[in-house]
Design a protein around this nucleic acid. Structure first.
Length: 296
DNA sequence: CTCAGATCTGCACTCCGTTT
DNA sequence: AAACGGAGTGCAGATCTGAG
Protein backbone atom coordinates (compact mmCIF):
# COMPACT_ATOMS: atom_id res chain seq x y z
CA UNK A 1 0.00 0.00 0.00
CA UNK A 2 2.83 2.39 0.81
CA UNK A 3 3.73 2.92 -2.81
CA UNK A 4 2.10 0.46 -5.10
CA UNK A 5 1.76 3.03 -7.84
CA UNK A 6 3.79 1.97 -10.86
CA UNK A 7 4.35 3.35 -14.35
CA UNK A 8 3.64 1.23 -17.44
CA UNK A 9 7.10 -0.39 -17.27
CA UNK A 10 6.55 -1.48 -13.67
CA UNK A 11 8.77 1.17 -12.06
CA UNK A 12 7.43 2.84 -8.85
CA UNK A 13 5.98 6.24 -9.69
CA UNK A 14 4.42 9.00 -7.61
CA UNK A 15 2.16 11.37 -9.56
CA UNK A 16 2.18 14.81 -7.97
CA UNK A 17 -0.39 16.49 -10.19
CA UNK A 18 -3.78 15.38 -11.41
CA UNK A 19 -2.48 15.58 -14.99
CA UNK A 20 0.44 13.29 -14.15
CA UNK A 21 -2.04 10.93 -12.49
CA UNK A 22 -4.33 10.63 -15.53
CA UNK A 23 -1.33 10.37 -17.86
CA UNK A 24 -0.07 7.40 -15.87
CA UNK A 25 -3.54 5.83 -15.71
CA UNK A 26 -3.75 5.93 -19.51
CA UNK A 27 -0.33 4.34 -20.01
CA UNK A 28 -0.73 1.62 -17.37
CA UNK A 29 -4.33 0.79 -18.30
CA UNK A 30 -3.65 0.61 -22.03
CA UNK A 31 -0.64 -1.65 -21.61
CA UNK A 32 -2.76 -3.89 -19.38
CA UNK A 33 -5.49 -4.02 -22.05
CA UNK A 34 -2.94 -5.03 -24.68
CA UNK A 35 -1.37 -7.79 -22.60
CA UNK A 36 -4.69 -9.14 -21.32
CA UNK A 37 -4.36 -8.14 -17.66
CA UNK A 38 -6.93 -5.36 -17.67
CA UNK A 39 -9.15 -6.81 -14.93
CA UNK A 40 -6.21 -7.48 -12.69
CA UNK A 41 -4.89 -3.94 -12.93
CA UNK A 42 -8.29 -2.44 -12.22
CA UNK A 43 -9.10 -4.66 -9.27
CA UNK A 44 -5.68 -4.14 -7.76
CA UNK A 45 -6.59 -0.45 -7.29
CA UNK A 46 -3.21 0.42 -8.82
CA UNK A 47 -4.91 2.86 -11.19
CA UNK A 48 -7.10 4.69 -8.73
CA UNK A 49 -4.20 5.20 -6.32
CA UNK A 50 -2.80 7.65 -8.85
CA UNK A 51 -5.75 9.93 -8.16
CA UNK A 52 -5.49 9.41 -4.40
CA UNK A 53 -1.90 10.58 -4.54
CA UNK A 54 -2.58 13.67 -6.62
CA UNK A 55 -5.41 14.73 -4.27
CA UNK A 56 -3.21 14.18 -1.20
CA UNK A 57 -0.47 16.27 -2.82
CA UNK A 58 -2.92 19.08 -3.49
CA UNK A 59 -4.15 18.91 0.12
CA UNK A 60 -0.57 19.25 1.38
CA UNK A 61 -0.08 22.18 -0.99
CA UNK A 62 -2.93 24.00 0.76
CA UNK A 63 -0.86 23.70 3.95
CA UNK A 64 -2.36 20.58 5.50
CA UNK A 65 0.23 18.75 7.60
CA UNK A 66 1.09 15.44 5.87
CA UNK A 67 0.91 13.48 9.11
CA UNK A 68 -2.78 14.42 9.46
CA UNK A 69 -3.68 12.60 6.23
CA UNK A 70 -4.65 8.92 6.72
CA UNK A 71 -2.69 8.59 9.98
CA UNK A 72 -1.95 5.22 11.58
CA UNK A 73 -4.00 4.12 14.63
CA UNK A 74 -0.78 4.42 16.63
CA UNK A 75 -0.47 8.08 15.67
CA UNK A 76 -4.15 8.72 16.48
CA UNK A 77 -3.71 7.35 19.99
CA UNK A 78 -2.06 10.62 21.04
CA UNK A 79 -5.50 12.30 20.70
CA UNK A 80 -7.13 10.07 23.28
CA UNK A 81 -6.51 12.65 26.01
CA UNK A 82 -7.23 16.33 25.39
CA UNK A 83 -4.36 17.30 27.71
CA UNK A 84 -1.71 15.40 25.81
CA UNK A 85 1.62 17.27 25.53
CA UNK A 86 2.64 18.43 22.07
CA UNK A 87 3.56 15.54 19.84
CA UNK A 88 6.58 15.58 17.61
CA UNK A 89 4.88 15.08 14.28
CA UNK A 90 6.98 13.58 11.53
CA UNK A 91 6.33 15.08 8.12
CA UNK A 92 5.28 11.75 6.70
CA UNK A 93 2.14 10.95 4.83
CA UNK A 94 0.10 8.20 6.46
CA UNK A 95 -1.44 5.52 4.30
CA UNK A 96 -4.00 4.01 6.64
CA UNK A 97 -7.59 4.23 5.42
CA UNK A 98 -9.69 5.09 8.47
CA UNK A 99 -12.73 2.92 9.16
CA UNK A 100 -15.54 5.31 10.00
CA UNK A 101 -18.91 4.35 11.50
CA UNK A 102 -22.05 5.73 9.90
CA UNK A 103 -25.72 5.23 10.73
CA UNK A 104 -26.03 1.91 8.86
CA UNK A 105 -22.51 0.57 8.46
CA UNK A 106 -18.81 1.24 8.69
CA UNK A 107 -16.78 2.19 5.64
CA UNK A 108 -13.09 2.87 5.19
CA UNK A 109 -12.58 6.32 3.74
CA UNK A 110 -10.10 6.71 0.90
CA UNK A 111 -8.64 10.00 2.11
CA UNK A 112 -9.17 11.24 5.67
CA UNK A 113 -7.76 14.46 7.06
CA UNK A 114 -7.93 14.57 10.84
CA UNK A 115 -7.80 17.76 12.92
CA UNK A 116 -4.89 17.99 15.33
CA UNK A 117 -6.81 19.43 18.29
CA UNK A 118 -9.92 17.29 18.67
CA UNK A 119 -9.74 14.42 21.17
CA UNK A 120 -10.76 10.88 20.35
CA UNK A 121 -13.50 9.64 22.63
CA UNK A 122 -14.56 6.00 22.07
CA UNK A 123 -18.28 5.35 22.38
CA UNK A 124 -20.66 2.43 22.11
CA UNK A 125 -23.29 3.31 19.54
CA UNK A 126 -26.90 3.48 20.68
CA UNK A 127 -28.90 3.82 17.48
CA UNK A 128 -31.92 2.30 15.80
CA UNK A 129 -29.89 0.50 13.15
CA UNK A 130 -27.60 -2.48 12.64
CA UNK A 131 -24.84 -0.43 14.24
CA UNK A 132 -26.49 -0.55 17.68
CA UNK A 133 -23.89 -1.77 20.19
CA UNK A 134 -20.93 -1.12 17.85
CA UNK A 135 -17.88 0.27 19.65
CA UNK A 136 -16.73 3.29 17.64
CA UNK A 137 -13.12 3.98 18.58
CA UNK A 138 -13.39 7.64 17.47
CA UNK A 139 -16.74 8.88 18.79
CA UNK A 140 -19.12 11.30 17.12
CA UNK A 141 -17.29 14.55 17.89
CA UNK A 142 -14.05 13.33 16.36
CA UNK A 143 -15.77 11.52 13.46
CA UNK A 144 -17.70 14.59 12.36
CA UNK A 145 -14.53 16.65 12.35
CA UNK A 146 -12.75 14.35 9.87
CA UNK A 147 -12.53 15.73 6.35
CA UNK A 148 -13.23 12.70 4.18
CA UNK A 149 -12.69 12.44 0.44
CA UNK A 150 -13.58 9.30 -1.48
CA UNK A 151 -12.29 8.49 -4.93
CA UNK A 152 -14.00 6.41 -7.62
CA UNK A 153 -13.45 5.67 -11.26
CA UNK A 154 -15.16 3.97 -14.14
CA UNK A 155 -13.19 3.55 -17.35
CA UNK A 156 -15.35 1.11 -19.29
CA UNK A 157 -18.90 -0.31 -19.19
CA UNK A 158 -19.86 3.12 -17.93
CA UNK A 159 -23.57 3.16 -18.71
CA UNK A 160 -24.04 -0.45 -17.64
CA UNK A 161 -22.90 0.44 -14.15
CA UNK A 162 -24.32 3.91 -13.82
CA UNK A 163 -27.22 2.92 -11.63
CA UNK A 164 -25.26 0.78 -9.17
CA UNK A 165 -22.43 3.26 -8.78
CA UNK A 166 -24.68 6.27 -8.46
CA UNK A 167 -26.66 4.53 -5.75
CA UNK A 168 -23.45 3.69 -3.92
CA UNK A 169 -22.24 7.27 -4.15
CA UNK A 170 -25.58 8.56 -2.89
CA UNK A 171 -25.70 6.00 -0.05
CA UNK A 172 -22.22 6.70 1.29
CA UNK A 173 -22.86 10.34 2.03
CA UNK A 174 -26.27 9.53 3.52
CA UNK A 175 -24.83 6.82 5.78
CA UNK A 176 -22.35 9.27 7.30
CA UNK A 177 -24.53 12.40 7.40
CA UNK A 178 -27.38 10.54 9.11
CA UNK A 179 -25.06 9.94 12.05
CA UNK A 180 -22.80 13.02 11.88
CA UNK A 181 -24.62 15.78 9.94
CA UNK A 182 -21.71 18.25 10.17
CA UNK A 183 -19.14 15.97 8.56
CA UNK A 184 -17.50 17.44 5.44
CA UNK A 185 -17.49 14.92 2.61
CA UNK A 186 -15.81 15.11 -0.77
CA UNK A 187 -15.93 12.84 -3.77
CA UNK A 188 -13.62 12.66 -6.78
CA UNK A 189 -15.19 10.62 -9.56
CA UNK A 190 -13.05 9.90 -12.60
CA UNK A 191 -15.16 9.42 -15.69
CA UNK A 192 -13.91 9.18 -19.27
CA UNK A 193 -15.65 11.39 -21.80
CA UNK A 194 -15.46 8.35 -24.08
CA UNK A 195 -15.40 4.92 -22.44
CA UNK A 196 -12.86 2.23 -23.27
CA UNK A 197 -14.42 -0.66 -25.20
CA UNK A 198 -13.90 -4.19 -23.88
CA UNK A 199 -11.60 -6.71 -25.47
CA UNK A 200 -7.82 -6.67 -25.91
CA UNK A 201 -7.65 -3.64 -28.18
CA UNK A 202 -7.65 0.09 -27.47
CA UNK A 203 -10.92 1.68 -28.60
CA UNK A 204 -13.58 4.08 -27.39
CA UNK A 205 -17.38 4.44 -27.30
CA UNK A 206 -19.32 7.63 -26.77
CA UNK A 207 -21.16 8.07 -23.47
CA UNK A 208 -23.74 10.62 -22.35
CA UNK A 209 -21.55 12.90 -20.26
CA UNK A 210 -24.39 15.39 -19.74
CA UNK A 211 -26.27 12.80 -17.70
CA UNK A 212 -23.29 12.47 -15.32
CA UNK A 213 -22.95 16.21 -14.94
CA UNK A 214 -26.65 16.61 -14.10
CA UNK A 215 -26.66 13.72 -11.65
CA UNK A 216 -23.57 14.87 -9.82
CA UNK A 217 -24.82 18.44 -9.63
CA UNK A 218 -27.89 16.98 -7.88
CA UNK A 219 -25.78 15.65 -4.99
CA UNK A 220 -23.29 18.49 -4.79
CA UNK A 221 -22.56 21.61 -2.69
CA UNK A 222 -23.90 20.83 0.77
CA UNK A 223 -22.87 24.23 2.05
CA UNK A 224 -25.25 24.35 4.98
CA UNK A 225 -25.16 21.55 7.52
CA UNK A 226 -28.99 21.48 7.37
CA UNK A 227 -28.93 20.75 3.63
CA UNK A 228 -30.01 17.32 2.39
CA UNK A 229 -27.93 14.55 3.90
CA UNK A 230 -27.40 12.61 0.66
CA UNK A 231 -25.40 15.49 -0.73
CA UNK A 232 -21.64 15.90 -0.62
CA UNK A 233 -20.11 19.10 0.59
CA UNK A 234 -18.15 19.13 -2.67
CA UNK A 235 -18.07 16.62 -5.53
CA UNK A 236 -15.61 16.58 -8.38
CA UNK A 237 -16.52 14.99 -11.67
CA UNK A 238 -13.08 14.45 -13.16
CA UNK A 239 -13.96 14.23 -16.84
CA UNK A 240 -11.08 13.02 -18.98
CA UNK A 241 -10.61 12.32 -22.69
CA UNK A 242 -8.19 9.38 -22.88
CA UNK A 243 -8.51 9.12 -26.68
CA UNK A 244 -5.57 11.37 -27.41
CA UNK A 245 -1.81 11.04 -26.80
CA UNK A 246 -1.97 13.14 -23.63
CA UNK A 247 -5.30 12.80 -21.78
CA UNK A 248 -7.30 16.03 -21.52
CA UNK A 249 -9.05 17.05 -18.30
CA UNK A 250 -12.26 19.06 -18.75
CA UNK A 251 -12.96 21.74 -16.18
CA UNK A 252 -15.76 23.62 -17.96
CA UNK A 253 -18.88 22.82 -19.94
CA UNK A 254 -17.70 25.20 -22.67
CA UNK A 255 -14.65 23.04 -23.36
CA UNK A 256 -16.93 20.01 -23.62
CA UNK A 257 -19.18 21.84 -26.07
CA UNK A 258 -16.19 22.97 -28.15
CA UNK A 259 -14.92 19.39 -28.43
CA UNK A 260 -18.37 18.05 -29.30
CA UNK A 261 -19.12 16.13 -26.10
CA UNK A 262 -22.07 18.36 -25.14
CA UNK A 263 -24.56 19.84 -27.60
CA UNK A 264 -24.31 23.55 -28.38
CA UNK A 265 -26.64 25.37 -26.00
CA UNK A 266 -26.47 22.60 -23.37
CA UNK A 267 -27.67 23.72 -19.94
CA UNK A 268 -25.05 21.56 -18.22
CA UNK A 269 -22.61 23.39 -15.98
CA UNK A 270 -19.33 22.21 -14.51
CA UNK A 271 -19.30 25.02 -11.96
CA UNK A 272 -18.49 23.56 -8.53
CA UNK A 273 -17.86 20.17 -10.12
CA UNK A 274 -14.40 20.82 -11.60
CA UNK A 275 -11.11 19.49 -10.27
CA UNK A 276 -9.27 22.80 -10.66
CA UNK A 277 -11.03 24.34 -7.65
CA UNK A 278 -11.93 21.15 -5.82
CA UNK A 279 -9.39 21.16 -2.99
CA UNK A 280 -9.67 24.90 -2.36
CA UNK A 281 -13.47 24.72 -2.32
CA UNK A 282 -13.69 21.83 0.12
CA UNK A 283 -11.09 23.41 2.41
CA UNK A 284 -13.14 26.60 2.37
CA UNK A 285 -16.26 24.70 3.40
CA UNK A 286 -14.34 22.85 6.11
CA UNK A 287 -12.77 25.92 7.64
CA UNK A 288 -16.11 27.75 7.62
CA UNK A 289 -17.83 24.87 9.38
CA UNK A 290 -15.00 24.11 11.83
CA UNK A 291 -13.12 27.41 12.24
CA UNK A 292 -11.26 26.24 15.36
CA UNK A 293 -9.97 22.95 13.97
CA UNK A 294 -6.26 22.73 13.24
CA UNK A 295 -5.19 20.96 10.05
CA UNK A 296 -1.72 22.48 9.66
C1' DC B 1 5.57 -13.98 19.67
C1' DT B 2 5.28 -15.65 14.13
C1' DC B 3 3.01 -16.54 10.01
C1' DA B 4 0.28 -19.12 6.78
C1' DG B 5 -4.18 -20.06 5.75
C1' DA B 6 -8.93 -18.40 6.16
C1' DT B 7 -12.09 -14.87 5.80
C1' DC B 8 -13.60 -10.28 4.74
C1' DT B 9 -13.98 -6.20 1.82
C1' DG B 10 -14.03 -3.21 -2.24
C1' DC B 11 -15.01 -2.86 -6.67
C1' DA B 12 -15.12 -3.28 -11.88
C1' DC B 13 -17.39 -6.09 -14.73
C1' DT B 14 -20.70 -9.91 -16.48
C1' DC B 15 -24.92 -12.13 -17.04
C1' DC B 16 -29.59 -12.64 -17.77
C1' DG B 17 -34.47 -11.60 -17.25
C1' DT B 18 -37.48 -7.73 -18.49
C1' DT B 19 -39.01 -3.95 -21.14
C1' DT B 20 -39.47 -1.39 -25.31
C1' DA C 1 -33.88 -7.22 -31.75
C1' DA C 2 -31.96 -4.00 -28.85
C1' DA C 3 -31.53 -1.64 -24.67
C1' DC C 4 -31.98 -1.60 -19.85
C1' DG C 5 -31.42 -2.66 -14.97
C1' DG C 6 -29.77 -4.76 -11.26
C1' DA C 7 -28.33 -9.07 -9.11
C1' DG C 8 -24.44 -11.83 -9.27
C1' DT C 9 -19.35 -12.83 -10.03
C1' DG C 10 -14.71 -13.16 -9.00
C1' DC C 11 -10.11 -10.99 -8.32
C1' DA C 12 -6.83 -8.77 -5.36
C1' DG C 13 -5.60 -6.90 -1.22
C1' DA C 14 -6.43 -6.37 3.73
C1' DT C 15 -7.30 -8.26 7.96
C1' DC C 16 -8.13 -11.83 11.18
C1' DT C 17 -7.07 -16.07 13.59
C1' DG C 18 -5.16 -19.91 15.70
C1' DA C 19 -1.49 -23.52 15.80
C1' DG C 20 3.02 -23.91 17.14
Amino acid sequence: MANKILNHTGIPFTPKTIQAAVNNIKQVYESAILNGTRRNIIRSSALIKNIHNAVKTDLIDTNIHPSLINPSPDYLQRLISPNQPAYNRARVLGDKELKIAGFLKTKTQDISVIPDNIPISPTTMNVNSGMNGYIDIYGETFTESILSINVRSQLSSVNKNFDTLYERTFAESLNLHLRVPNMVLGEVYLIPVKEYIDGNVIGFNAIDIGKYIENFQAINMRINKNDEKFKYERCCLLIVDFDRPVPKIYNTANELIQDGFLPVGSACSMTNLDYANFVNDIMQIYSTRFPANILT
